[in-house]
Design a protein around this nucleic acid. Structure first.
Lengths: 196, 196
DNA sequence: TTGCCCCTGGCACCGGGTGTCACTAACGTC
DNA sequence: GACGTTAGTGACACCCGGTGCCAGGGGCAA
């Protein structure tokens, strides 16, 4: 999905995405209409929908690549490693962003986790992530992705990861990697903090 | 929210809800337009939106009452009981439906968990549940609802409960209570099934 | 009867999303 | 240089979910 440098299509898409992100952050997702984004990006309303299937999709960047990377990370894990640990490690690693990319990520996640329409939409995107994780766990445990444990691991780890993102957003100075590690650990170990 | 018997408003609302549920199940959520539901219920399109704020809301019944009941159950838990256990128990109890209500619940949940638009919408409804659970955990642990553990417990238990519902839907003959118990336990105990 | 209130339907409108068509700027071919 | 092809674009009409507004109509009390 990432295009060669100088590619007009990818350039335009990036420009539209930037315009959308800026406007959404500035005025709120619901308050911005497609015509605003299109105008800011110098294209027509119709063309906007050629780059993004929905208004919400303009916020997600190349999330498909992200999911594909997670899938690869999971496939490459050491079979000797405990399944749950492998999933947690992959979650941490796939979210190991370069310092320079963090501000953009923060802007994206801030929108996704606070704007109701985007929060709802996120469920559809995360379904892919769940599928990938459940398939991995099923492979490792000799069951099917529809079995309890694969489904549960996928749902729980995603819940923990989302919580980690919320904590990261709330604390400007914190490290996303640390937050993910801490949150996934707390859950995977059965909430040691709460034990008497 | 439940109205006195003979109440015309509550009767109409129930009739619209039934019509919506039937049509959605029969033809699929996206394939049914509001005019179809309105016609089937003998009202106008405009009136539909006086009973339900959105198309999706017609599927949820009196979910607000449900959340309120969960809140009460959590408030009434024994302070000596471990926090996580109290949340799991409350989740199980609030979903302890009468035998006669199970078919309707199954129809609702089938729609919510399989129709993309409804799955997305569910995130907004569940936000209330998360808030209630996080507040409970915060109270019990002397922190705030925005702290890591309250948020994480809310997110994880909901993930587990959702998984339990999926398993229940997939197995026609199973018990929802048993599924919830099993799934919440598996997660709360740190996934004993996966331990070497 | 009159006035009030609530429920209702009709209508116009907004905004996200789609299908269709016509235009234009590349580009290679003869 | 004329030609057909192709991809990207904009304009337009349309669908559908959702809302604001106003006009009726039935019950009910004074």
């Amino acid at each position: 999905m990432t295009d060669a440098p100088g590619d007009a299509w990818g350039d335009t898409r990036a420009r539209v995405e930037q315009a959308a992100l800026d406007l959404f952050t500035l005025k709120g997702f619901e308050q911005v209409i497609i015509d605003d984004v299109a105008a800011a990006a110098g294209i027509s309303r119709r063309t906007f929908f050629r780059y993004f299937a929905t208004k919400a999709d303009a916020v997600w960047g190349d999330f498909g690549t992200h999911v594909a990377r997670l899938e690869r990370l999971l496939a490459d894990t050491d079979p000797a490693e405990p399944v749950l640990a492998s999933v947690c490690a992959a979650y941490v690693e796939v979210n190991d962003y370069a310092e320079a990319d963090l501000p953009l990520l923060r802007e994206r996640m801030q929108l996704i986790l606070t704007e109701p329409a985007l929060l709802a939409h996120s469920q559809l995107r995360y379904a892919d992530v769940d599928r990938v994780v459940a398939e991995h766990v099923a492979r490792r445990t000799g069951t099917t992705p529809a079995a309890l444990v694969p489904r549960l691991v996928a749902a729980s780890t995603r819940a923990a990861a989302t919580t980690a993102f919320q904590m990261w957003l709330a604390d400007e100075g914190s490290s996303l990697t640390v937050q993910l590690h801490q949150t996934l650990d707390e859950m995977a170990r059965g909430f040691p903090t709460l034990r008497p």
